[in-house]
Amino acid sequence: MDFTLKIWRQANAKAKGKFEIYKISNISPDTSFLEMMDILNDKLVCEGRDPVAFDHDCREGICGMCSLYINGHAHGPDSDITTCQLHMRKFKNGETITVEPWRSRGFPVIKTWWLTAALSTRFCKPEGSFL
C-alpha cells in the first residue's frame, strides 16, 4: 500500500511547529502503524534527515506510552485500541494520513509529538488509586 503522510514537526516545546508531507510506499496491510513510522524513519535516517520522534514501548496496547492523534482521532480510526495496535489495513490505499501530537496541556510536546505523561501519572495517587 502507498500513503501520503502529513506529519506535525516541532523541534522542541517552544519551537513553532508545522506540517510536513512525506510519501511512503510498499507497506503491507498487516504492518502496524508504528512499524510504518519505523520504515519512514529508517528512510529519513538513510537520507540524512531528522527522523520523527514518537513515544512507544510495549507495542501491544498495555503500557500507555504511544499517543498519536491520527486523522483527527486519538489513536486513529480503529476502536478500543492504542496507536501501537492500529494496523495499516484500516486505511485505504493512497490515503493521506494526518498525524499530530495530542494537543492538551496535560501532554506537552517535547519534540515532534512526543509527550510527557506527567499529568496522567499524577492521577495515580500514592496509596493506590489506580488509573
Binding site: 510495549c58 498495555i62 505523561a117 506527567a118 501519572t121
Partner: peptide, 12 residues
C-alpha cells in the same frame, strides 16, 4: 527509561 515508572516492561 520511560516517562513514568509504571510503564516498565513488567506491565505487559
Amino acid at each position: 527509561i520511560s516517562d513514568s515508572p509504571r510503564r516498565a516492561h513488567s506491565v505487559a
